[in-house]
Every structure is written in structure tokens, then in C-alpha cells.
């Protein structure tokens, strides 16, 4: 009985970690190509959730599952265009601009949909529980976990196993040299902005049935994603994956021990990381004759 509860909490932890990962991974990817921490990311997550709620009546749950992140990705492209036109070279202004846009997005959601939470439930077919002997787990949660794992795996394959990803990794290291090889980085920046932001939109659509949908919902997950990238290291794929799972699982287990300890565990991990791994989980390399990249 006891071990089943622990497995349950472990799965919950992995699930939480998977969401954090979807949001943090997008942040990290966008940072590695543009050098800017995108503060609009939480707003994109919220927009993904709102869109999922609004689209489901028209195109069904599965349809909104695809359409919401896709629409968010388009927004990401538009914003990347806007920012790159004005602020290539001044990261502070770009950072402020992303925050301003986040503010506008939150207020726009409030103006359009109102401040009170929207109601949304998982589709009827997924509201049951799966039973394996004594072990009981929500179907919808398993679907969410699977969807997140698939999305992260596909992203990994894209970055590390395709010619497209090769350009992205090269561009993160030495954009000038990539240009001198005949490759214009602009479309890649756009694609990565779309991908990164789309992952946040996907997280929003996935989480819509299990969280409170309100305009400022992005702040909470953005905070967690920041904790993850600080622990894992911006631009480090494996660092972010490891940190997200670590934060998620520790949170799951801590919440089992004491419900209020969930949040505390996250900040505790952050504190430990800052004290003992001030260069990130796997370390950030000093640039010597050339940059190292993982």
C-alpha cells in the first residue's frame, strides 16, 4: 500500500517535471539563439490554455490540442520579428520588451475573457482511472505525461539529430560563422521562437483541465521554469531536462510528506543549487579559444 502511494507521488512528480520542462525548454532554446530570456513565456502558456478552452467546443479536444499550440507558435513568430527588428544588440531592452508584452497579454486576456476563472474539464473519454491491481491513476494524467514525453523527445531529435538542429546548435555558438557559411539565421531564429513558444502553448493546453484558468496563471509556471533553468543552465538541453525532473520529483515526494512542502522544496533546491552549483548542474564552460556547447 505504502509503496503504491510513493509510486503515485513519483508519477505525479514526473508529470509536474514534464510541464516545467515544456516551458523551461522553450525558454532555454530561445535564449540560446537570441540571448534573451523571454518573459512573455508565461503569457504564451496562459494563451495556450485559454485557446484550448475556447476551441474545444468547435474542433474538439484533440483538435484544440494541436491548434492552440500552433496558434501560439504563430504569435511567437510575430513577436520574434518585432523584437529582432528593434533590439538585436541590446539585451536589456529586449528583456524589458518581452516583459511589456507579457503585461499586455495578461491584461488583454482579462479584457477579453474576464478576470474570473474559466471552467474546463478533461474530455469524457479520459475522465476515468486506470487500475492495475491496487494501483489507480487518472487516465488523463497519463495521457498528459505521454504527450509531454513525446514533445520533449521530438524536440531533442530535432535539435540533435537533424540538419536543422545542427544549424541551431552552430548558431548558438558562433552566429557570425554560420552566416559566413551561407546560412541566414533569421528563419532559424523564427522557427526556434515558434517551437519554444509553441511548447509553452502546448503545456497550457495540456494543463487547462487540471489548473485554474485565469489571466495571471502564467506567473506560477514561469517561476518554476525559471527555477529549472537556473538549476540546469540556460542553453543546456540535458541540464534543463535533469533539473526539471529533479524539481518535479522532489516536489511530488515532498508534497506526499507534507502538502505545504511542495513549493518550499522548489525554493530549497534553488538555494542549494545557487550555493553549491553556481555554474549550473553540469557547469557552464568558459569561452577559451572557442565556445563549448553541449
Amino acid at each position: 500500500m505504502h509503496s503504491i502511494v510513493i509510486i503515485d507521488q513519483l508519477l505525479n512528480g514526473l508529470l509536474i517535471g514534464a510541464y516545467y520542462l515544456l516551458v523551461a525548454l522553450g525558454l532555454s532554446l530561445i535564449f540560446s539563439l537570441s540571448g534573451v530570456v523571454n518573459l512573455t513565456h508565461g503569457a504564451f502558456y496562459a494563451i495556450g490554455a485559454y485557446l484550448a478552452v475556447r476551441l474545444t467546443p468547435h474542433i474538439g479536444f484533440a483538435g484544440s490540442f494541436v491548434a492552440a499550440p500552433a496558434f501560439v507558435a504563430l504569435l511567437g513568430i510575430a513577436i520574434e520579428r518585432l523584437l529582432s527588428r528593434f533590439h538585436r544588440g541590446d539585451p536589456m531592452l529586449a528583456l524589458l520588451a518581452t516583459f511589456g508584452l507579457a503585461m499586455v497579454a495578461e491584461q488583454a486576456l482579462r479584457a477579453i475573457f474576464g478576470a474570473s476563472p474559466l471552467l474546463y474539464a478533461a474530455p469524457a473519454g479520459l475522465q476515468d482511472n486506470i487500475r492495475l491491481g491496487d494501483f489507480v491513476y487518472s487516465e488523463y494524467r497519463l495521457v498528459m505525461l505521454a504527450a509531454s514525453v513525446v514533445a520533449v523527445t521530438l524536440t531533442w531529435l530535432l535539435i540533435y539529430r537533424t540538419p536543422f538542429g545542427r544549424v541551431v546548435r552552430a548558431g548558438a555558438q558562433n552566429p557570425e560563422m554560420v552566416g559566413a557559411l551561407g546560412i541566414s539565421l533569421a528563419p532559424y531564429r523564427m522557427a526556434i521562437a515558434a517551437l519554444g513558444v509553441g511548447l509553452a502553448g502546448l503545456a497550457g493546453a495540456l494543463l487547462a483541465p487540471v489548473v485554474t484558468i485565469q489571466p495571471a496563471m502564467g506567473d506560477k509556471i514561469l517561476t518554476a521554469a525559471f527555477v529549472v533553468v537556473v538549476i540546469g543552465g540556460l542553453g543546456s538541453f540535458r541540464g534543463v531536462v535533469a533539473a526539471a525532473l529533479l524539481v518535479g520529483v522532489v516536489r511530488g515526494l515532498a508534497a506526499y510528506a507534507l502538502p505545504a512542502a511542495g513549493d518550499v522544496s522548489m525554493y530549497g533546491l534553488l538555494l542549494l543549487a545557487l550555493l553549491f552549483r553556481p555554474r549550473g548542474l553540469f557547469g557552464e564552460h568558459l569561452s577559451g579559444e572557442h565556445l563549448a556547447f553541449e
Binding site: 545542427r166 544549424v167 552552430a170 560563422m177 551561407g182
Partner: peptide, 26 residues
């Protein structure tokens, strides 16, 4: 074709990868 001072190779990528990048759009 440009060979910068200090070479500007992409670390962590194999020789084949470095060459493939250059051929991609050229």
C-alpha cells in the same frame, strides 16, 4: 569560402557535421 583567424569551428560537432553545415546552403 571564409576561414577566420582562430578557425571558428563548431565545438562538440564532428568534422563531418562541420562540413555538412557549410554545404547546406552552398
Amino acid at each position: 569560402g571564409y576561414v577566420p583567424q582562430g578557425r571558428g569551428l563548431f565545438a562538440g560537432m564532428t568534422v563531418a557535421d562541420n562540413l555538412a553545415l557549410s554545404r547546406r546552403e552552398r
